[in-house]
Design a protein around this nucleic acid. Sequence first.
DNA 1: CATAATTATGAGCAAATACTCAGGTCTTGC
DNA 2: GCAAGACCTGAGTATTTGCTCATAATTATG
Lengths: 205, 205
Amino acid sequence: MSADQRRIQPRKQPRQVRAELTRQRILTAAAHVFGEHGYAAGTTNRIAERAGISIGSLYQYFPNKDAILAELLVRHLDDGAAIAERLQREALPGPIEDIFRLFVRGAIESHLDEPRLLRVLLEQAPKSTDVLVKVERLKTNLVGYLRALLDGHPEVRITDTETAARLIVTTVELVIHQLVADHEPVDIGCLETELVAMLTRYVRG
Amino acid sequence: MSADQRRIQPRKQPRQVRAELTRQRILTAAAHVFGEHGYAAGTTNRIAERAGISIGSLYQYFPNKDAILAELLVRHLDDGAAIAERLQREALPGPIEDIFRLFVRGAIESHLDEPRLLRVLLEQAPKSTDVLVKVERLKTNLVGYLRALLDGHPEVRITDTETAARLIVTTVELVIHQLVADHEPVDIGCLETELVAMLTRYVRG
DNA sequence: CATAATTATGAGCAAATACTCAGGTCTTGC
DNA sequence: GCAAGACCTGAGTATTTGCTCATAATTATG
């Protein structure tokens, strides 16, 4: 397939309005197609067709197929980072349970639309170093914040806060991915309640 | 790509010893190649090359590429089912913490070798109805067993045992998949300890 | 209105790859 | 030792698909 991706800028910059519009149409179509067919079967021609443009136009805005999915992933990561930042401002000192609830809600919130695409993003996304760094940065940020929280909160009775923070972040992320994108419809409310309960009782010892 | 898979039996049956040997060599090679390159880039020619046989021989034992991965998945599922069955016999009435530890250890145990392949299996495996049924059956079995355990154990103080059982099974499965196949080496011992602690405190209320 | 710049088109190329088949080699059974 | 069947071979086929490029259409500029 491909692994190079040496051409970063497929063209200089979109300068007209219709150009930016076409770009958006491509990304929207790609989100649908990748979510529907997966990455391998989500062909560029299909994306162009769904976007209502020609295949040539598509390649004027993206250097290759990987770049399209990477762009979608970057957008999702930026959304996640924004939510995480918001949470870190909102979460005033209070019961650890409330903080966890905010945390879990934020995670659920950012995965409600387009769960199928999300799955593709995280499972089959081409692992360009550029994007991987961004993923790692977001995760490290979350883990660091959570660890500081665990260290400073009076309710918390845990020694290995490093491992605990990682476990919590990983658990929330994965469980939500799984259950939101799952075939069997799970009640989101129940899930939230139980997940928060699990985390709370865990850290309170 | 492919989605048919109408030819189930590529040939009647292996009747000589070398035939069965070749079959094994193909599966072993496929496990390596899929684990190394992923499903899409794990070409049948590469598998044949690694197995030291010709591409024609490969297609005498498997009707198509999907079938090879499906066979690997079925084997892993059978292993998992065997371990689960063993656990359900071993786990005598005792502290819930000990039971969870056995549970977690069993899960880790069955994912230690070939973690990369495991990832491919679960993320990119072709979802033939046949295999999906087997996955669902194993999961339902585990959830049912765990729910009965939660319902009957004196230490447990949880009302929604159905959701709890699902949450626990999902969490253990996903966290272990993630951390075992992860790039960053996480201490398995720490992980086991914390995971068991989390589950135990969760169900004890 | 004329010229240049930007954007759009889509037939077709090159490469990759799942899979076939005609014809070999090895094993078995008598 | 000799057929008959089981097993193996690998060059080649058919198809898919990411992507290019020559050309056309549209928009900006002066």
